[in-house]
Amino acid sequence: MKAVYGLYPSGASAQQAVNRLRAAGLADREITILSAQPMEDFEFGHIDKATYMWWFACLGGLVGMSIGFGLSWVTEMSWPINVGGLPTWAWWPNLIIIFELTMLGAILATIITLVVTGLLPSKGQTLYDPEVTDGQILVGVENPVDSRVGDFQKALEAPNGARVKTL
């Protein structure tokens, strides 16, 4: 038994399914929910919302800023070339380089955080059904304990319009 899951036509029935799985003793992280659009009108759409992405973006910005500062400082000071009587290391022009690299750092850190925390597949979380694309909402349990599959099936079948499948 790899997975047991139900497909629901509406957010409300999916919400019921989630609630019943919880009542059957499952924690949020053991329930798999898939939808073709963000479901923020429903409680289940807010599971696992906490993220440090903002902080990682700031961190990336700081790294970028340091690279920008270091790059301009090290290269200009190690080979001072006089151009037009400007100071060898001048704040104003180099601030532009520092700014651009700060933003680049923040952007790249955001993307890396997204890919690592959101997109890289975790072990044992591969449940998928192409019908999700057509607007069905999938609620299911991956790698359930065999003895409890019956309970889960019952819980998933309860809401209106449910179609329960097993893999």
């Binding site: 798999t32 929910i33 898939l34 939808s35 073709a36 659009q37 963000p38 479901m39 289940f44 759409g45 807010h46 599971i47 696992d48 919302k49 993220t51 992405m53 903002w54 955001t110 993307i111 955080t113 997204l114 925390t117 959101g118 997109l119 890289l120 597949p121 449940l127 998928y128 999700v132």
Partner: peptide, 15 residues
């Protein structure tokens, strides 16, 4: 590897 879990949607929107 997009599946459409609530977590993925949140991360995408935050990003």
């Amino acid at each position: 590897g997009w599946r459409g879990t609530p977590k993925q949607w949140h991360r995408l929107e935050t990003a």
